[in-house]
């Protein structure tokens, strides 16, 4: 589904990604781990099309279509979803209104009719129950005055509403207490099908106790230096990143 080949990207002339290769198939969950500053969030931003970053080489393909030149909203229409590490506030725009706009704009871009109001309401009810979200929450301004945990839960609620092909969760576990973490992970797991895929970007193994990855990749200094199964995450948790740094240096 997702094919990243020799991806190089830089910000203000400084190269952050230095030749990433990654292939994600439908139905898979990939975890990308690595220490601070290794380029994890940059990778997420570049896939989503953040124009602060410049792709200097390589390509990103989703289902055979190259994303490199696409605007961020076009990538979203193609089915890319990013759960932000730091979701922004939009005062005066309710969660419901925001979702309604996002879904209908996406449908419009795909040449579909707007979603009928009753269907929209039904979907909102269903998905908010899945993530144990209080209905009152949905009429609050987007992320305004939300706690860290509420913001993350709201991101996953949006994920559930948008039903993308590829979901990238950027440090979704940060700011979550253990109960919230379980709810969020449970939500992600229930949204999984054999047609969509998930990339989980995380610092710690903790989230991976609940969202079990098929593949784990270690990102170091802008490159994937090691890949493995879920046991790699456990190994990292136990031993830290130093041994990989040494291994990579060899």
């Amino acid at each position: 589904m997702l094919k990243i080949k020799n991806l190089h990207a830089s910000v203000e002339g400084k190269e952050i990604l230095k030749g990433i290769n990654l292939e994600v198939n439908p139905g898979e969950v990939h975890a990308i781990m690595g220490p601070n500053g290794s380029g994890k969030s940059t990778l997420a931003s570049v896939i989503a099309g953040n124009e602060d970053f410049e792709i200097t080489d390589g390509s990103i393909e989703l289902e055979g279509e190259e994303l490199n030149e696409m605007a961020p909203e076009e990538r979203a229409h193609q089915g890319v979803f990013l759960s932000f590490q730091y979701p922004v506030e939009i005062p005066g725009v309710t969660v419901t209104n925001f979702m309604k706009t996002a879904i209908n704009e996406t449908r419009k871009a795909r040449g579909q009719e707007e979603m009928p109001a009753n269907e929209m309401l039904k979907k909102i009810r269903e998905k908010s129950e899945l993530l144990e979200i209080d209905r009152k929450f949905l009429s609050r301004s987007l992320n305004e005055g939300f706690s860290g945990g509420e913001k993350k839960r709201n991101e996953i609620f949006q994920l559930a509403m948008m039903e993308p092909k590829l979901a990238i969760l950027d440090e979704t576990d940060s700011g979550l207490d253990i109960d919230a973490l379980k709810i969020v992970a449970n939500g992600v797991n229930r949204l999984k099908t054999d047609k969509n895929a998930t990339i989980v970007i995380t610092h710690y193994q903790r989230l991976l106790d609940y969202i079990i990855p098929d593949h784990v990749h270690v990102l170091l200094n802008g490159k994937i230096v090691k890949s493995g199964g879920k046991e790699l995450a456990l190994e990292l948790e136990e031993k830290g990143y130093d041994w990989i740094k040494q291994e990579a240096a060899v």
């Binding site: 099309g49 605007a71 961020p72 909203e73 922004v88 939009i90 925001f98 706009t101």
Partner: peptide, 16 residues
């Protein structure tokens, strides 16, 4: 710009 990118990422173009 971060607000606009956030909206873009949800499929909403810049004007909207």
């Amino acid at each position: 710009e971060d607000q606009i990118f956030y909206c873009n990422q949800r499929g909403i173009d810049t004007e909207k």
